[in-house]
Design a protein around this nucleic acid. Sequence first.
DNA 1: GGCGGCATGTAAGTTGTTACATGATTAA
DNA 2: TTAATCATGTAACAACTTACATGCCGCC
Lengths: 189, 189
Amino acid sequence: MKTSKNKTKFVILGLLSEEPLTGYEIKKIVDTRFGFFWSESFGQIYPELKRLEGEGLIIGNELLANENQSGKASKKYKITEIGRGDLRKWLAEPVEKIAVRYEILLKMYFSNNTTPEVILNHIREFQIIHKKQQFIFDRIEDELRGNIDLHENHQAILTVLSLGQKLEVSYVDWSNEVINLLEGKLKNS
Amino acid sequence: MKTSKNKTKFVILGLLSEEPLTGYEIKKIVDTRFGFFWSESFGQIYPELKRLEGEGLIIGNELLANENQSGKASKKYKITEIGRGDLRKWLAEPVEKIAVRYEILLKMYFSNNTTPEVILNHIREFQIIHKKQQFIFDRIEDELRGNIDLHENHQAILTVLSLGQKLEVSYVDWSNEVINLLEGKLKNS
DNA sequence: GGCGGCATGTAAGTTGTTACATGATTAA
DNA sequence: TTAATCATGTAACAACTTACATGCCGCC
């Protein structure tokens, strides 16, 4: 089974399977809810929405400027039955292996070419970012556990969040180890 | 400080900072040693080597077919002092935030649109892959700890590996949790 | 004789980012 | 009045993948 590329399509279909949305709203949801494991830009979303409408997988409904809360006309899309079919088919396809890029590990690997101080600063910065993210995730978890029926896919959201939390623990633990190691090295020199 | 894009450049400079290499060897090293946090294709490496040579950051040395172990002529590149300067400059620049794409979390998030069995199969597959990877990393660690002076950047390699190991633990733990949850759901239905 | 590994390279296509243009409303 | 938010869309570019062409050597 050949796996489908063009994941933007399925991000859109997946989000529209819950409720009708505009392109702008899709982008916002991807940024806030999927931020730690996915990203999409407007330059991908808008042309893709047009394409999917052309294929009959979604249908758009124009809203006049006075019908929504903004000053500009917008377009709310909803998924069709054909769209749901494509979504289900993709869900059953084999999962593509995770794709990651950690520039920090590249710099760590090549760290012989610079001073320990330079690397230490990077790791400290890294740790600050991930401690913050850890805090945010824990907040989100509290909120979700307090409102069990806010989303119909409540359990799925918690499961996704759970991997995010575990990864943040790994990042913070690892940076602690590296900071200790590098600080020890600096003291002995 | 604006961060440099075009990371292929620094992967090449970084690897050449240790020893002269051919394009083919660079690709092999990226695949085997950086595989879990980075990737480069031939289509990126070969044109980039040409460009870097044109800029005087590296210099290539042609080897005839009979001078190496293959049947084809090859080109060994080594880094210049200017190249080392660029590498050091990049090492001091702020680190770009990690970029990840977990298609499995997308499917998890949208799992309401399919059956628990479909998701369960994906998670089981995911777990098999990451248990294998965990085993491989532990092997590499044993090997490295047994040969302390194989590489001059020995400690850096262990540090990079350490994050890989922690991430694999997260993946395996998480998939265990999800498998238990979904199997429970299937029994109660 | 065929396959896998060594080895280089290009072309075409896809994917994704960034910047820009447009423009109304609301809050500081 | 100015910045932020809502909102859509395109153009240019940069990054990256995939397939292909070429060809020797050693092994089974």
